[in-house]
């Protein structure tokens, strides 16, 4: 190995310092938020909390945890996320798998049908009127079905399937396996990375999504967490939040808002680092043309 010159080492360290700054910029807002959520209100009122909590105070968290409305919304969103992820993965694989057969008759027509939807969207109001005519407004299904197939994700999965050698499929066909069987016992076990990636994408999409609920749901009982959070953040007046969102404890403080934000963020922050290897591969797959 060549010994690195002074200039190179200096350069290395400059890049390291730059990255430390960038990393801090990403993480400091979260730390500030966590600190505020744990601080006593007298310090918050005087705006003295920076990165460490002052006068440790977990009241905000116990309030949130003790509030039936919030807990209900949390588990409702967890439930929605799990169901959506499962339904979406099923739909995506049902769409992606048959399309890897080169000789499938009608494949071109299907591809055109799919591609058009990537370029042209009917628009917000037509979609709204559709949900209305299907009777889906104000039902849980409207948060699950309309978004259950993302064509971009389907393309990622299809690219992954293309990477599995045809010979595996062909030898299974020769052995007389049905297509369902080939999909379930050859492709599925080999596709764990892409399923992990897309599960993450779909789950994050559902967990973070609030637009569909904003458009299609007026019943507060069915609000997912993010929409509840949006309303809490936008009602500066705490009395208003209490009456509208049903927080029964008086004195909705700043720290309570922060605690709510923390709560709705933590589940994702706990999950994504473990899937990093997969989603990096998945994102890159989507960019590779079949």
């Amino acid at each position: 190995m060549r010994v690195k010159s002074f200039k190179t080492v200096l350069g290395d360290w400059l890049f390291v310092i730059f990255c430390v700054i960038v990393g801090l910029m990403c993480i400091l807002p979260m730390i500030n938020l966590a600190a505020k959520s744990l601080s006593a209100s007298e310090y918050l009122v005087r705006h003295e909390v920076y990165l460490l909590p002052k006068g440790i105070n977990v009241n905000a968290y116990s309030t949130v945890l003790g509030d039936a409305k919030y807990i209900k919304s949390f588990f409702w969103t967890v439930f929605l996320t799990v169901v959506c992820t499962f339904v979406s993965l099923t739909m995506t694989s049902l769409c992606a798998y048959p399309l890897i057969y080169d000789k499938l008759k009608g494949k071109n027509v299907i591809n055109i049908l799919i591609t058009i939807t990537m370029f042209f969207n009917a628009g917000l109001i037509p979609n709204y009127l559709l949900m209305q005519s299907l009777g889906l407004l104000n039902t849980p299904l409207v948060l699950i079905i309309p978004s259950c197939l993302s064509i971009y994700n389907m393309i990622i999965m299809r690219s992954f399937f293309y990477g599995i050698p045809d010979s595996l499929r062909e030898s299974a066909e020769i052995d007389g396996a049905s297509h369902f069987k080939i999909f379930l016992s050859v492709y599925l076990p080999l596709s764990k990375p892409v399923f992990a990636t897309l599960a993450l994408f779909y789950a994050v999409g559902r967990w973070n999504g609030y637009t569909d609920a904003l458009m299609y749901i007026t019943d507060r009982e069915m609000y997912p967490l993010q929409l509840l959070l949006y309303n809490i953040l936008n009602n500066i007046n705490s009395v208003e939040v209490q009456t509208q969102e049903g927080f029964s404890t008086p004195g909705l403080t700043e720290s309570l808002k922060d605690a709510v934000v923390m709560f709705s963020t933590i589940p994702i922050l706990l999950v994504y680092p473990w899937l990093q290897k997969y989603f990096i591969a998945g994102t890159t797959l989507g960019a590779v043309k079949e």
Binding site: L33, W207, G209, L229, Y230, L233, V261, T265, L269
Partner: peptide
Amino acid sequence: HFLSWVIIYGL
């Protein structure tokens, strides 16, 4: 990237 826009607004 994994934070929702509502949370980013909160931040």
